[in-house]
Nucleic acid binder design. Structure first.
Lengths: 228, 228
DNA sequence: TAACCATGAATTGTCGACAATCTTAAAGAA
DNA sequence: TTCTTTAAGATTGTCGACAATTCATGGTTA
């Protein structure tokens, strides 16, 4: 079944629940990056059998949060500078594409709704000065809307189920809060304008730059983090 | 474990074997596209338990060859025109990126080796006139080398484990053999030249065009196929 | 007739136990 | 000492059975 990263999807089975729980714990760092995973231990902790746990592990592997080796076991993905660059290169290409498609497809009222969302975020931001949660959530929300507007289901799945948890893991564990708030807002605005004008080429370019800026930001933080 | 789509990776476990076997059968159409999958039936057929089979099913889902619904079951992916377009849009973006990175990274001797491979394919092509297998394999080989030359492991995984089996499925089941042989060869050559000159921008552009041409080709075939 | 509800069959999800493999640590040889 | 070998322990892979859910069939009612 397709587990969406953003909207709350229906959780029907026990392995669904374990998957969602573990995903959160890994992204937030409760389960440490790079650490070995013991199946018997985790199965006991979540109160399920190993079969159920392994089902969840398989899905976590699909979204790149853990790595498996046959007859050896699972390990939580390790956050490295190299991987960060790799992931952002892919993200840039895919979200650039999504943005171009959105510019082609998005109807006028959808654009208006997106603009409204952005203004709303700005207001919330002003009120809750310094509070980082809203920024992160707002940013995610903005990107997710554009991704969905691409109307390309395969692309949507690839980004929201495949890449975004890993990206979030870097951001959360690096404690991304930051001075990029207002700048990011301007960039978002420029992207919306390009989409509104159905200028796919420009929208793609702007999105790629926006993501590059985000990468530079997090990368700097990562290097500072590693030198400690 | 990471199952590579091209190079023959070590098969250690029973579910590995089932995964590889089923993958081939799905891609080649022995297991019909869109058909429902019965776990008990297939488990018996492959001579393994359901647990082992389900492990394989999970991996097949990761490379987009089957789709699961909770408490309902699995279904082989259905080949549709819409999905074909979606997949090729993603492929274009990702392989364009790979090609650009390859142009940045590839050493002179690697480029030479790739050129040699291409010439070799041309010769084989001339000898085995009309035989399509070599063309298909040659094309795959060429693309795979460039993908690997990107040196971006995440991208490599995404393409070779994620997208290529699905693309192959379309190509195989549409019976792609065809008049694009010599044209594709010229396009490949132009791409290599751009890479050799470390002109990443051009290499990316040419690769995207090459893939677009390939898409147009298979799409036409698909529409002809569907109208029958 | 058509729509709706039981009931049973079949399928998927989950469990605990066994087999195969890897890891660790101790014992022995160079 | 250091490297190799071996045996015990622990971990993963696989199996068959049970529980929960869905699907198909037939019967009932409007």
């Amino acid at each position: 079944m397709t587990q969406d990263a953003f909207s709350k999807t229906q959780i029907t089975t026990a392995s669904d629940q374990v998957f969602v729980d573990m995903r959160r714990e890994i992204v937030e760092g409760s389960i440490e990056q790079g650490s070995k995973i013991s199946e018997p231990e985790l199965a006991k902790r979540y109160g399920v059998s190993r079969a159920t746990l392994r089902e969840a592990l398989n899905r976590l592997e699909s979204c790149y949060l853990i790595e498996r080796k046959a007859n050896v076991g699972c390990r939580v993905v390790a956050l490295t500078a190299e991987r960060l660059i790799e992931v952002y290169q892919v993200r840039s290409a895919l979200e650039g594409l999504a943005c171009r498609l959105a510019a082609d497809n998005m109807a006028a009222d959808e654009v208006q709704s997106l603009k409204q969302l952005l203004n709303q975020h700005l207001q919330t931001q002003r009120v809750k000065e310094g509070e980082s949660y809203y920024q992160e959530a707002g940013d995610l929300d903005f990107h997710y809307r554009i991704i969905k507007a691409s109307k390309n289901d395969h692309l949507i799945h690839l980004l929201s189920n495949g890449l975004y948890q890993l990206i979030r893991m870097y951001r959360v564990q690096m404690g991304m809060v930051g001075p990029r708030v207002s700048k990011a807002f301007d960039e978002h605005l420029a992207i919306i304008n390009a989409i509104e004008n159905h200028d796919g080429e420009l929208a793609e370019l702007l999105m790629k730059r926006h993501i590059s800026a985000s990468q530079a930001n997090i990368q700097a933080k990562f290097e500072r983090y590693q030198s400690m």
